[in-house]
Design a protein around this nucleic acid. Structure first.
Lengths: 249, 249
DNA sequence: CGTTTGGTTGAAATGTGTCAAACTTTGTGG
DNA sequence: CCACAAAGTTTGACACATTTCAACCAAACG
């Protein structure tokens, strides 16, 4: 529960660097952000729709999801977040949260006060651009998920989700060539892809049977990513990884 | 095709004001943005996925949609845009477009060079905040659409879409109490809600039959918005309209 | 170990898609 | 201003993907 700077926010820097080029000075300023580090159990809400938080949540370890509940109690998972993500960065400019945030695994998170974030990006405008850009990448991912759920059949939907998870894990150094952690239940896969657990289960079995994936014990292995990408109609462009940036000022 | 400032961008100011408080000086600076005004026919692409534009598109009149095509040629419409929107504002920070933009009606658009936008918000940081905020509101809408398509049944999906259109139209002064323009075909409704035209048609007939909507000749009338909101599980919070802002500096 | 959580299975019900045709409105050129 | 074409809407019959419900099994865990 200590409020102190330190090497905690290293994953944050790594994540920003996966989509934006930062100078040493900028990285140092980010690492020095004061934050309150907290350990959380699995399946706990961090913030809820309707809250008006005064701080952002930096995920340091574990997996978190953004979700909404519909009127009749069904849950749509809108994003899975990995270490280094700030899933509610948008709360800097949107007073009231429009979705909730929950842990899926035990997590370590750092809470950073909005003022600290604002001071940081006012002092370093390029960090402001980097923050803006990450929220835009998040938006791009929501669009892709919308297309995924709206237009693709159940097999492609799940294949697409698995591709994304592996590619993003690799981008932040959380995966080997063909394997990454996958501590996500079939129930949660179903909620992310807009189908029933029962159906998600049958689809996963099909994907396994066709040799596209191995998925067990919280591990995802993709022996042939190209083939899974084909099956999931997956093109990583929407992740906006490693696009050349404007040169630092 | 004139490159000139003028009163064209008035809708833009109105749109920004619907979610952000601007000073007179800031408004003037926005209205003075140099832009190239162009008239477009219906059903034309403005920019395409994969493009690397050097300018943004400000919609001055008409209706535009953001969409993606999946591998097998199906189209997901991800947003409808009204006068005052800048549907590709994100291109300021995302080099490569991840979705396409097409007119649905004849349109008047103003193209504004990225440099001009950047100069503007570097000179007026609060305008930068306003821009950032509009992209965040867009993101919030994508999330809601994701929940809509992923979790709600077909009747609620369409009811929700119609609620949103009416509420947003009202917010920018494009609607009376219960009626707004609706120059959107059933095919397009279907593509926005992830169903077939045939099914969308049957649902619309149901909604008409239960007296929830009148929808014909490019006009949408909602005699009892509360009832339609109920049917569509619609809560306008995600539009982030008129939230109190931080006071101008 | 027993209990809980997550995964798997089967059979039946149903919402939505498909296909193909007809109808209606809108727009356009003669 | 009519006639025609094009675009959009509506209909019916049928196929099928997905949900529902209910039970069972397997793994994880204190």
């Amino acid at each position: 529960m200590a409020t102190k700077p330190g090497s905690h926010s290293q994953p944050f820097v790594r994540r920003l660097e996966s989509i934006f080029a930062l100078s040493e000075e900028e990285k140092r300023a980010i690492v020095d952000l004061p934050m309150q580090v907290v350990e959380l159990k699995a399946d706990q809400d961090i913030v809820r729709e309707g809250d008006r938080p005064s701080r952002c949540c930096l995920l340091l370890d574990g997996v978190v999801c953004t979700y909404k509940l519909t009127g009749d109690g069904k849950r749509q998972i809108m994003a899975f977040h990995l270490a280094g993500d700030v899933p509610d960065l948008q709360s800097l400019h949107l007073r009231v949260l429009d979705s909730s945030l929950a842990t899926l695994t035990p997590c370590k998170v750092g809470f950073i006060r909005h003022e600290a974030m604002r001071e940081l990006y006012e002092r370093f405008p390029r960090i402001g651009d980097a923050f803006w850009r990450t929220t835009l990448v998040d938006g791009s991912i929501f669009r892709e998920w919308l297309a995924n759920v709206g237009q693709r059949n159940s097999h492609a939907r799940i294949a697409h989700l698995l591709c994304e998870t592996l590619v993003r894990s690799k981008a932040v150094g959380l995966a080997t060539e063909e394997t990454c952690d996958f501590p996500i239940t079939q129930q949660e896969i179903a909620e992310a892809t807009g189908m029933t657990v029962v159906h998600a289960n049958r689809v996963i079995q099909d994907l396994r049977a066709s040799g596209l994936i191995e998925l067990r014990q919280n591990k995802l292995t993709v022996p042939d990513l190209d083939r899974l990408m084909e099956a999931g109609d997956f093109d990583p462009a929407y992740l906006h990884l490693n696009e050349p940036q404007r040169v630092a000022a």
